[in-house]
Design a protein around this nucleic acid. Structure first.
Lengths: 297, 297
DNA sequence: GATTTAGACTCACTTTTTCTGACCTTAGAT
DNA sequence: ATCTAAGGTCAGAAAAAGTGAGTCTAAATC
């Protein structure tokens, strides 16, 4: 009958969130990614939760984790609770700053697709503040505070443009190219997050795979584009992103073959937003005003 | 179009909890009490939340805080979310340790009412682990992980015993007492958390208030009882707690007058528990087995 | 059968968050 | 006028959370 320590603390909220994410996503690494921490942090959180609880929530193996019956049984309740919490946060933010729209997108999309359209968007929607966050992966809208997601994806939301890819290079370099076989003698640029682009293109163009030797790798698409503009090699380009350069002639497509990737440029928001919210207005604008903006600079 | 910092962090869960508690309870101090921290901590949490949000949630004044429209509008959502979270935790704990019952109660009740009954309870419910936490205030069952609350309260739950109070003292001391007026010459013991007991008794016994001068104060009822047993003075006693001593003759009631306080000894649990849960079994046992246990020691 | 790979764990260390404790301020109540 | 209750502030302390490098294991691949 011990008199308790001063603080009758409930469970650690962070640990509960770590559990929910891990259970929902089926692994600590995935949860770590969603929550923006390292897997080790998740591992520690779960461990402390299990210790406090006195029972394991996951069964560990070298291949990953599997929920125990206890964990599986607990997941739905926490899922709902955190959904509701996220919704409450969303609504609070909306009420506090109704004219602010947070867009999450790929760095490359932000720079090459969204940025050129922003001036006109801002001009047509004065009073609406648009902030853009570049992320490598689409965030979970239920758990983060972004209003819109703009990524290459297969199913979610609505398509803004198909992802058409084909080699591009500077006009000077293009003069040296007549057939795809000429690629063998040139650097083939690509971005790390789109490693399979060359392969996809070669496949869809029915060309042998070996003709695109690995060239310089860039961790940022912008860098690769810059190099292509400088004539440093042939880049496997995404049409949607490079339209201004192609229209302006700074980049040209030396070959006719094009490939369409299964993941199109898509825009989505959280289900259940008011149609008259600022975010939905922005979404509508982005969906309709699809004309190529003028090349800037 | 800044590329965001590495962590697309959502809101701090702790701050949201602080907001919810403050809004629900109508003040930072009350929230601090429920969450087991100092008011300063709550103040800081709310401040950081408001800063992140860019809008105030409370309107401050020297007298207290009032929700802004934004805060008032946000409260229900968070209330539901944290209710659901608490429920999920509760269910998880139940599933993890179905035979463990946590009881929250006053230190005095724990020692003088519950403790004497525990041996028999444990004997009749083997396999059920009962843990007791002594708190000065009844915790919010929706937000903490206790199964049962046992406190003096006016409305909640079911009555286990009325709170009948009257002066008690050692038999030796009682011989010197014939009328309440004799109290003027003796120390009148009382516990800090029951400061008004003497007054209540005097009122209900229709006696002048001045005859119970303030005597030694104890921060723990157990200490006051100990002193009374030692003959150090007259204690304003709670019948429910002192039954064993009265039955055993270690303490006697020198006067006939008794008073009944509006707050009875009551037991309650969170709504919606399964009737076959261990906590409900324990609750049933406590409600039915009301006979006075033998004085121990 | 050897190698790679993905996922998780450990541990020492660092960073960040959270909390306290002492003191100040304010407005209504005594 | 003084008291009291409720907040605010701030420096420093304590606790929590997170990192990063290295290890382990089992399945998948070569």
């Amino acid at each position: 009958m011990a008199i308790s320590p001063p603080r009758p603390k409930s469970f650690a909220l962070t640990a509960l969130r770590a559990f929910e994410a891990s259970a929902r996503l089926g692994g600590f690494s995935a949860a770590a990614q969603e929550l923006g921490v390292t897997p080790g942090a998740i591992s520690a959180q779960i461990k402390s939760l299990e210790a406090e609880l006195g029972a394991p929530l996951f069964q560990r193996s070298a291949k990953g984790v599997v929920l125990t019956p206890l964990g599986a049984q607990s997941l739905p309740g926490f899922g709902q609770a955190f959904d509701q919490l996220g919704l409450a946060v969303q609504q609070m933010r909306d009420a506090a700053a109704p004219r602010v729209v947070h867009i999450a997108t790929l760095p490359a999309i932000a720079q090459f697709w969204l940025s050129p359209r922003l001036p006109q968007l801002r001009a047509e929607m004065p009073g609406t503040e648009i902030s853009i966050t570049a992320l490598e992966q689409p965030p979970n809208l239920k758990r983060t505070s972004y209003d819109l997601c703009l990524f290459f994806a297969e199913t979610e939301g609505t398509i803004l443009a198909e992802d058409v890819i084909f080699p591009v290079c500077s006009p000077a370099l293009a003069e040296q190219l007549t057939t795809p076989m000429d690629l063998l003698n040139l650097p083939c640029l690509y971005d790390t997050s789109w490693e399979e682009d060359w392969e996809h293109w070669l496949t869809q163009a029915a060309l042998p795979h070996h003709i695109a030797p690995r060239g310089p790798v860039y961790s940022l698409y912008a860098l690769a584009v810059e190099e292509a503009l400088n004539g440093a090699g042939v880049l496997i380009g995404h049409e949607a992103l490079l339209t201004p350069y192609l229209a302006g002639g700074q980049l040209v497509a030396p070959f006719g073959q094009k490939a369409i990737l299964p993941k199109a440029l898509r825009l989505w928001s959280m289900a259940g937003r008011h149609a008259d919210s600022a975010s939905q207005e922005v979404a509508r604008w982005l969906k309709t005003k699809r004309q190529t903006p003028p090349r800037q600079g």
